[in-house]
Nucleic acid binder design. Structure first.
Lengths: 204, 204
DNA sequence: ACCTGAACACCGTTCAAGT
DNA sequence: ACCTGAACACCGTTCAAGT
């Protein structure tokens, strides 16, 4: 991970290194197993070093969650760009990006949507999660441009809830515990299709 | 909480007492803030006492999650009993019970649906969560008795995902952060109605 | 059978001291 | 400006010893 064999006294990129090692550690150990000291160890610094870059372990977790939301937004956008331009196509594609990110980063996804990363106060984390919501909201509204504001809100709730709930339940083994990866993807796609159909039908 | 002023050497109900104090502690401190020692302190025993009743802190958390699923099932059943007997009425009522339980026990709900309570191995926890799924699956199938097995599965996914996803997003402040409790309930009810309608329409 | 107290190896955070 | 090492108050788990 580091270029020189003997580390200099000053790391130089420690904030980045901690975010990188932290992300790996989070996926390996889970939210409860995550420790700041192990994170520092993997970055090759003393356990006290992180304090200069992150006020507390919760700050580091918030940073990981923030980056997670940025990546989630990118995954949704990338998948949408690859799909056809139809409103339902965009909606389904965003959902595929959302689910793929979650499946690839289960612990991070869990952290992002957990109380442990305090989202209440305004800040980068709140902004990053808001950006994901905005992306999704725009896709729903584009699918039902003539609907009332109330219907738009309800369909945004509906689309976001089914998309999020499905992958969340899959990650916990509540859905598709015995399914193959292929079969599970088909179930996810079926869910997204039913979701998009409902949005355009109710919003028409 | 205890009846006698001076505790005897043997507690007698320690397993129960730990589950009770643990549940309160969990809601107060969250999953990451939960500690076995504080739990023992609140139950009035030494920090080493829990070991006799729970092999590890993860075992205690699994017990809390198991009891949570039992209560969740009871909440769903109770709400359904209060509703009219129509298939969609039952489905919506179960959803109301589900969401009310989650809203009243946010940290426990999060624990129940988190990787931290290891659900993989068969056991009381897996059985308790399976019971909730069975309850919900039966309600969906009752609403669409003539549908194919595949449609039934897809609609169960769909109903469970939207119900779970909505309340999960609410608990994280992703949905309805600025809404009053009353407005939020209306949004939840609208979501459950749209969900039930979609189930019967697709399954017809 | 059930609980305590000491012990061990950890942990997060702080802070003087080093570079 | 950034990092270390020691220190502090915690934590989970183990285990001899108590009742």
């Amino acid at each position: 991970m580091s270029r020189q064999k003997s580390q200099p006294y000053h790391h130089g990129q420690l904030r980045e290194a901690l975010a990188t090692s932290g992300r790996t550690l989070l996926e390996e150990k889970g939210i409860r197993g995550f420790t700041l000291r192990e994170c520092a160890r993997r970055a090759g610094v003393s356990h006290a070093a992180p304090a200069y870059h992150f006020a507390s372990i919760d700050d580091l977790l918030a940073e990981l969650a923030t980056r997670g939301f940025d990546e989630l937004a990118a995954a949704m956008t990338a998948e949408a760009a690859r799909a056809d331009g139809s409103a339902t196509g965009q909606l389904v594609a965003q959902g595929i990006g959302y689910m793929a990110f979650a499946a690839g980063n289960p612990a991070l996804f869990q952290l992002m949507f957990s109380r442990e990363a305090n989202r209440l106060e305004a800040g980068p984390l709140a902004a990053a999660s808001e950006a994901v919501r905005a992306l999704h909201g725009a896709a729903v509204e584009a699918a039902i441009p003539h609907a009332s504001g109330e219907i738009k809100q309800r369909m945004t709730d509906f689309a976001g809830a089914s998309m999020h709930g499905f992958i969340a339940l899959v990650l916990e083994g509540e859905i598709g515990g015995k399914d193959s990866s292929r079969a599970l993807k088909a179930r996810g796609l079926a869910l997204l299709s039913a979701m998009a159909e409902t949005v355009v039908r109710v919003g028409a």
